[in-house]
Computed example of a mutant assay.
Amino acid sequence: MRKPIIAVDMDDTICHLVKRAIYHNNIEFPTHPLRYEDMMDWNTDHLRHPESTMDLFFGRPGLYEELELFDEYVVEEMEKLHNAYDVIIVTAAVPKTVLEKWNWLQKHMPYIPADNFFTCKRKHLIGYDLLIDDGPHNLLPAVQAGKKVLCIPHPWNLRAREQYSFPLMTSWEGAKERVDEILQAQGEPEL
């Protein structure tokens, strides 16, 4: 029998990307500081300094290898999920960040094999049973396709969370049990 496939995003789901990118932005552009709470969209409006770009903000060399774990529970809970389900990492990446993301994953979660590491921006094209993600542009297509989701709440998904009732996961504590419950629920609509 096939194990359910759990697709897990990396950035701002198992590690903190935006907070670290803000940290570097505020050092480089102290006259135009950014705040995590103000990151309400996935566009470039938050880059207030004229020399700041999305590529600089998210493409600083070495950025993805220095990211902090989401919380103190994520490594243990991801291992529990890995042991019970077919866990795949599905992360958006440009070619220059793929190796950094893989290195980060192997440092913190070496039990995830290379065969379970996918770089893909259009996650709805991947086959999975449940998606754990922070991006509304990934969560909504998953729900519309009849898949289960768990949303990691951040300011940039607040509007989507107000419009749709995504199940939320604010901490990785008890994540395995939460996934078990969601997968066992049959026929209940997500929205």
Rank of each mutant, 00 (worst) to 15 (best):
N43C: 09
K148D: 12
T119I: 06
L69Q: 05
E37R: 11
R35Y: 08
N83P: 00
H46L: 12
W172M: 10
L17N: 10
L183V: 08
V149A: 04
A7E: 09
A160R: 09
P61R: 11
G187N: 12
P50V: 01
P4M: 10
D115G: 14
M1K: 10
K19W: 00
D45T: 13
V8M: 01
E68G: 08
L130V: 04
V74K: 03
L63I: 02
H82A: 11
S171D: 08
V90L: 15
L67G: 02
I182L: 15
A92I: 00
E76T: 11
L158K: 15
L69V: 11
L131C: 07
W102N: 03
A175N: 03
N157L: 10
K96R: 12
W172F: 12
L183Y: 06
L191V: 11
P136Q: 08
F57D: 01
V8G: 00
N116W: 01
A21C: 10
M1W: 07
R48C: 04
E100L: 01
W104Q: 02
R2E: 14
V87N: 09
I14M: 07
A145L: 13
M169V: 14
V75G: 00
Y85A: 09
A160F: 10
W172S: 03
H108Y: 12
L63T: 01
D9V: 00
K123S: 00
L150A: 03
K121G: 12
M109D: 02
K147C: 09
A145D: 14
I126N: 07
L158Q: 14
Y128G: 05
T97C: 04
D12P: 12
I14L: 13
K121L: 10
L130Y: 04
E181N: 09
K3R: 15
E190S: 05
H49L: 00
N116P: 04
W172D: 01
Y111R: 06
K19E: 14
I152R: 10
M40I: 14
P167V: 10
P155R: 05
H32F: 13
I88V: 15
I152C: 07
D12G: 05
N103V: 06
I5Y: 03
L69P: 03
D55N: 13
P141M: 06
F29K: 09
L56S: 12
G174S: 03
I112D: 02
R159L: 13
N157I: 07
K80W: 01
C151K: 02
N138C: 14
E173K: 15
V98R: 14
I182C: 03
L63R: 03
C120N: 07
V149T: 13
K148S: 11
I89S: 13
E77L: 03
K80T: 08
E66C: 02
Y164V: 10
V98M: 15
